[in-house]
Amino acid sequence: MVKQENTLYRIAKVIAPIIVFLIVFGGLEWAIGHYDVPRWLISKPSDTVQVLFDKFGEIWPNVWVTIKEILIGYVIGISLGISMALLFTSNRFAEKAVSPYVVFLIVTPQIILVPLLMLWMGFGIEVKFTAVALSSFPITMISTMTGVKNVSAHRYELMKSLRATKLQTFFKVLIPSAIPNVFTGMRLATIFATTAAVGAELISGNIGIGPQISYYTEFMQVDIAFAYVYMMMLISVLFYTLIGFIENMILKRR
């Protein structure tokens, strides 16, 4: 009896989120049809998916541009964030000197720099991945710094009693201890990266997901604009879950 309930519950656990999504999109579909909302205001999910398949050849190159911006910027941003964090925490003075400003970096949206970046770099892809890198860097840095600072003193004492070299302590204790925090930062950084890419595209540029959305909205082809929104939704969720998945793989055993 109990076992049966368990299997039932297990099935429910899998189905429940799917039902929630069905209700959200189904409700949208029904409401748009029922209230006869004009096509240039919003498009039915079914129409959007249809357009997405029909025009995929045209949509994909733009999506690919955005993905490239995100990936290049993200890799630069997190590498910068992790190395800066390790640099600053390696020295007490440096840590004290920069830590008040790190918070400033966290609360100042880096996309505000996009207009300036345009003055310096023009309208190319460089502006976008610079914006993405600048946006994903602070959160990774602050998380890594927290991780490094919270390494238990007992672990250092163990290394000291073994007469470990500084390098050994760094690679065998400090890095593995800080890894969970590094991953938290990297996972959050994906959200900053995707937001920055789209933001930078909408502010400057003519290729990529953002500009396409504005273009098709302006020409009242909202279904195509929504197709791009769906693609962006897919990219963001996949990116976030991918990093979360790697995180779980590595930390699962602890």
């Binding site: 672990r155 163990l158 290394m159 073994l162 470990a164 065998k172 602890r254």
Partner: peptide, 21 residues
């Protein structure tokens, strides 16, 4: 306290000092 490293198995923890030295 036992102070074992959580990312290593028990065997790897016991072997850890050998690796360091």
């Amino acid at each position: 306290r036992p102070n074992l490293l959580p990312w290593l198995t028990l065997r790897e923890n016991i072997q850890f000092p050998q690796k360091i030295v």
